[in-house]
Amino acid sequence: MTRPFVRLVGVTKTYHAGAQEFLAVRDVTLDVEEGELVSIVGPSGCGKSTVLSILAELQAASGGTVEIGTPDSPFTPGRDVGMVFQKALLLKWRTIIDNVMLPAEILGLPRRASRERARDLLEMVGLSKFADAYPQQLSGGMQQRASIARALVHDPKLILMDEPFGALDALTRERMNLELLRIWRESSKTILFVTHGIQEAVFLGSKVAVMTAGPARMAAQFEIDLPEPRTLDVKTTEKFGNYTREIYHLLGMH
C-alpha cells in the first residue's frame, strides 16, 4: 500500500495563557491519499480550523506526528499549500487577475507563465470575463471562485479550505459544491475541506472526519461510498441519508 499524502497521528494542540493551559484539539489521526478530497466536519470550537493551520504550518502541533508528502511527491511548505477561507479575502485595490496572481508574486514565480496560468484558472472557475474587474464588482459566490483560483495559481499539492462556502446563500452554496467537485476532478489536487455542514461534508468528501467540541477531538471517520462523479441527486439517496444520520447522531443531534 502506498503512503498517504497527509498523515496525522495523535496530533494535539495546546495553548498557554499565563500559567494556564488550554487544549485546542487532541486525538487527530487522519490519512489523506494524494488526489483525495476529505471533509472535516464538526461544530464551532471542535478544533477543525486548528488542524488546517497546523497543516499550513501557521502553528506547530504540541504533540503527535504530522507528515505531508511522499517520496514520489515531496511536499514543500509554503510552496505547496493553497488556502481558501470563509471570506474571499480579495485585495480591493487589485483586479481579479492580479488577486489570483498574489501567491505567485509572493513565491517569486515567473511572471508571464503565472499570468497565463491565472487566466486559465479564471477560465476554469468561469470568471474569464471578469479578469480585469475589481472584487467589489463581483457577487459573493464569484469572489469565492476567484479565491479558489488564487489558491491554485502556484500549483500547490495541498489545498486547505476553511468553511469556504459558509457565507454563501444555500443555492449558491450547492452550486459551488458542484463547481468544487469539478475543479477537484480537473486539477486532481489533494483537498482538505473544513465545514459546519454535514450534508456538504458527505456530498463532497470521499472520506469524512467528524470532530466534536468539548473536548475538541477527532471522534470518527467515515469512508463515503457514493457514485462518482457526484451529482445533487446523490443527496436524495438512502445511502446519503444514512451517512448524514450517523454523523448527526455522533454529534449528539437527534
Partner: peptide
C-alpha cells in the same frame, strides 16, 4: 485570515507590508 493566507505561503514581513498593509 489574510495574514494567515500569505503566511501560509511563507511571505516575509516586507512582502506583507508592501502587498497587504500599505495599500490597505
Amino acid at each position: 485570515d489574510l495574514i494567515n493566507l500569505v503566511k501560509s505561503l511563507k511571505a516575509n514581513r516586507w512582502q506583507i507590508f508592501l502587498k497587504i498593509q500599505l495599500p490597505g
